[in-house]
Amino acid sequence: MVALLDSADRIREAIADVPDPEIPAVTLADLGIIRDVRVRDDGGYEVLLTPTYTGCPATLVIETSVRIALDRAGLCAVAIRSVLSPPWTTDWISDAGRDKLHAYGIAPPARGDGRGTIKDEGPATCPQCGSVRTTEISRFGSTPCKALWRCEDCAEPFDRFKCI
């Protein structure tokens, strides 16, 4: 079994570029969905995944995409396990992931105390023009993890990643 001889670093490298199925501009690693790579009690490895929402409709696609990336790298014996506790938080999004979200036209959430509240009720920064004169149009956007906003200055609609 080749996978049992491989390091966690090789596994991380094999799955590092797996894109998020709903926001392909960012990777699962950028979003913090790839929680960890661990050695199991039997000496094998497992990849721990935490979806952005417990009922995330993309969870099966995420697991399948990770499995395909591992298999392509010859890491067929690596297990994949979903971990829901503690739940995913937007604080797990990397700085690179936040930059990629912004470049893609999605307002990334503030970090930690910068959120103000868990719902991040403060104004969103428009990813098109940088204005904070923005209004939430709908708490539910194109995916469950985003809300739909509009900029009052450039009049462009945009998604804002919800803080959780």
Results as ranks from 00 to 15, higher is better:
A3W: 05
A3I: 09
L5K: 02
L5E: 00
D6K: 05
D6H: 08
S7Q: 02
R10E: 08
I11A: 11
E13F: 02
V18R: 07
E22V: 14
I23L: 07
A25G: 01
A25H: 15
V26T: 06
L31G: 06
I33W: 04
I34K: 08
V37I: 07
V37H: 03
D42K: 12
D42S: 03
L49M: 03
T50A: 05
T54F: 06
P57M: 08
T59G: 13
I62L: 11
I62E: 14
R67A: 13
I68S: 05
L70G: 15
R81A: 14
R81P: 03
R81Y: 12
S82L: 11
L84K: 08
S85F: 10
G97S: 06
K100Q: 10
Y104H: 12
I106Y: 12
I106D: 12
A107N: 12
P109K: 15
A110V: 15
G112K: 04
D113Y: 00
D113C: 13
R115F: 05
I118G: 13
D120C: 02
G122Y: 09
G122R: 14
P123N: 07
P123K: 05
T125K: 06
V132H: 09
V132M: 12
T135S: 04
E136L: 09
K146G: 13
K146T: 08
W149Y: 01
W149S: 00
E156S: 00
P157Y: 04
R160D: 06
